[in-house]
Design a protein around this nucleic acid. Structure first.
Lengths: 119, 119
DNA sequence: CATTGACCTGGAGCGCACTCCAGGTGGAAT
DNA sequence: ATTCCACCTGGAGTGCGCTCCAGGTCAATG
C-alpha cells in the first residue's frame, strides 16, 4: 500500500481531485507519476507533501507563498535557511491570527451574555 | 464629537470608504444619515455597529450571515433568542478555527525544528 | 474666481482559489 | 459486447468580498 489513485489521494489528503489537478498544474505538486493509461499515481511522499500543503492552507498561507515554499523544497540543503525563515514568518502570522480570533471571540461571548441578560 | 465623516469613520472602523458604501448598499448598514450636501454622517451608534461587524468579519463570518444578523438586530426583543443562537453557532465555529490553527501551528513549529536539526 | 479635496453615484473590474464542463480513454464487471 | 466508472484534458465559470473608475457636486481655501 504505497501507491494511491487520485480518488484515494483526494480522500486521504482532504483535497478534491480537481484541486489536486489544479495544484499539479500550477506547480505545487511536481513529478506526479502516471500509469500506462496516463492516470496519476500518488506515493506516500506525495501524500506527506499534500499533508504539508494542507497545513499551510488551513493556516491561511496564500498559494503564491506555498509556491515559493515548493520551489525551495525542490532545492537542496542550501535552501533550508530560507525555508525556515518562510515558515517562521508564517508561524508569526498564525500566532497573530489566533490572537485576533481569541480577542474577538471574547467580544462575541460578551455580546451573547448581554443579550441573555436582557432576555 | 458624535458625528463622523466617511473618512473619519473609515479610519475609526478599519473599513475603507468603499467598503462602507458597499455595506450600506447591501443592507449591512441602514439608515445612515446624510447632510444637506448628500454626504453620509455616521453616529456613535453606527460606529458601535461597525465595530460589531468588524468582529464578525475578522472571525470569518460570511456576509450573508452578517446580513441575517443585521435583520435580526433591526427587529426588537423578540429576535434576542435567534440572535443568541446565531452568535453561539458562530462562537463554536471560532472555537473550531482556533483549534485548527493551534494544531497546524504545532506542525509548522515541528517542521521548523526539523529543518533546524538538519542544518 | 479658480482650484482643491472630500465626497457622491452606478456600475464595471479584480484577485483568489477553486470548481465545473464537454468530450474522450481505458480497464473491469455483467 | 456493452455498460460502467474512474479518470483524462483544456478551458470556462463561479463565489466571495471587495476595489476601482468615470463623471459629477459642493464648500472651503488661496
Amino acid at each position: 500500500m504505497s501507491f494511491y489513485s487520485p480518488g484515494e489521494t483526494a480522500e486521504k489528503s482532504g483535497f478534491s481531485i480537481d484541486t489536486l489537478r489544479y495544484y499539479e498544474k500550477i506547480g505545487l505538486l511536481s513529478d506526479i507519476a502516471r500509469n500506462a493509461a496516463g492516470r496519476r499515481v500518488f506515493t506516500d511522499d506525495d501524500l506527506a507533501w499534500l499533508h504539508m500543503l494542507r497545513c499551510l492552507r488551513e493556516t491561511g498561507m496564500p498559494i503564491a507563498e506555498m509556491l515559493r515554499f515548493s520551489e525551495l523544497a525542490r532545492g537542496g540543503e542550501e535552501t533550508f535557511k530560507e525555508r525556515v525563515e518562510l515558515l517562521e514568518a508564517h508561524d508569526r502570522r498564525v500566532e497573530e491570527q489566533i490572537a485576533v480570533l481569541q480577542t474577538q471571540q471574547k467580544h462575541i461571548q460578551w455580546k451573547i451574555g448581554f443579550y441573555r441578560s436582557l432576555a
